[in-house]
Design a protein around this nucleic acid. Sequence first.
DNA 1: CTTTATTTTCGTTTTCTTTCAAATTAGTGA
DNA 2: TCACTAATTTGAAAGAAAACGAAAATAAAG
Lengths: 253, 253
Amino acid sequence: MLMVDRLRRIVELLRTHGSLSVAFLAGETGVTEQTIRRDLDRLAAQGQVIRSHGGATPPPSEPGDDCFTARLSQAADAKRRIAMAAVALVRPGEHIMLDAGTTTLAIARLLAGHDRIKVITNSVPVATEMAQRPASDIVLIGGELRVSTLSTVGPMARESFGRLHVQKLFLAASGIDAERGFTNSNLAEAEIKQAMIAAAEEVYAVADGSKLGRVLLYSFAAIEQVKALITTANAPHEALEAIRMRNVDVILV
Amino acid sequence: MLMVDRLRRIVELLRTHGSLSVAFLAGETGVTEQTIRRDLDRLAAQGQVIRSHGGATPPPSEPGDDCFTARLSQAADAKRRIAMAAVALVRPGEHIMLDAGTTTLAIARLLAGHDRIKVITNSVPVATEMAQRPASDIVLIGGELRVSTLSTVGPMARESFGRLHVQKLFLAASGIDAERGFTNSNLAEAEIKQAMIAAAEEVYAVADGSKLGRVLLYSFAAIEQVKALITTANAPHEALEAIRMRNVDVILV
DNA sequence: CTTTATTTTCGTTTTCTTTCAAATTAGTGA
DNA sequence: TCACTAATTTGAAAGAAAACGAAAATAAAG
């Protein structure tokens, strides 16, 4: 096991367990306590962990600085423009699905104004955002809650999506590539996205330009499965062309 | 247990209990009174607690603590005491259900510290609260989202509960009466509560004293269906007696 | 004045730091 | 490609520091 892997592992273990002793981490990683101490010193210098006598604790997660809200503020304007283009596609009275993600959250924010639209989602932030407006009609899909994205996954969620049928799905993806299709770094989420795609008549992918040409671990759909991709103009030109060649509309905002 | 964990625990216990003796803290944390004294000295030096002869008290609340917020936190204090009694019933490794409500939200807040507990809920606030802590294992029940309570209801939620099985359910109710049982003013929620009760081995009702003797529109359970009622001492005495007569434990906090 | 709590002191245990050597890895130049 | 050197990582051991518990002396509370 490489040292970087071990460091990552330590951070991960601390995040899930709350706080751990040097001895435990040594046993868990198969190295000496000495080495763990050195690792913790290093991680503490980077602010990744808080060192304490006998062990370490994860860094305090201030409200509004976790990974989710951090991503939220990033490129807020681009996301809003994408969201506006997405909302323009929605007709009154339609049933739509919203994937979990910051771009889809921006869609929810705009959509909250529209009446008579039923929104189905597995994202807790999307649901709470929609609930702000009284006239909304929301179905929240149940399942195991993924803490990092605040969305539900697992068999229960997959099955729930399997029974539903909607006109439009707005799909988020961390990686979009003409060849490899849509990819994601988490298996459970990839499975849910597949279930959502199966439940929708038309699928619209929403993602800022940085996601184009990126390929991640789990692939969950071919590029042809979506009707259109809504993205920003900073996407790599050749990636966009390759997608257009496969009969997917590209909407640039 | 690391020292930092113990220090955190002490602060937490003081915050919830109000003020505690050195002996109690020693018993609670499994160390000598001597060590507790040293801990308290340390915490007092940081201003985290106020030292006093024989024990310590939590730090004074923030300035700008007017009469209104005092009353507010008083109600919060009642809920927290109920929540503490509820959490004391939970054993490590158990699966529990949390109903939607402010008292159950207080339970979630306390429960978030416990490891290895799986929480099933239909309440979005409860789920997000639990998700704050890394080590939590949460199942969010899906369904139509009721905007006013941010909880899911409807056939989908009912069915989901129908497939689950947990050791303990902490049930909230707007009205509790020995004769009329548990009542609620919303039909959809009443139905969900019935489904939850059916899915749990043991049901514990949690409600502040003002709910006792009240009867609302929809009744969803008889008083005998719960194992115990956790409530505050300000509940009407005759209402409590009537409930006790029906073999329901009453836990006053 | 009695009881209880605190401080002080001391020894034991645990954890940390420092230092050194072996092992691994990366880089260099023939 | 093949040694050779330098840097990094890791483990081991010894001394320093911290945490903890126990007991005696002191202070506080009723």
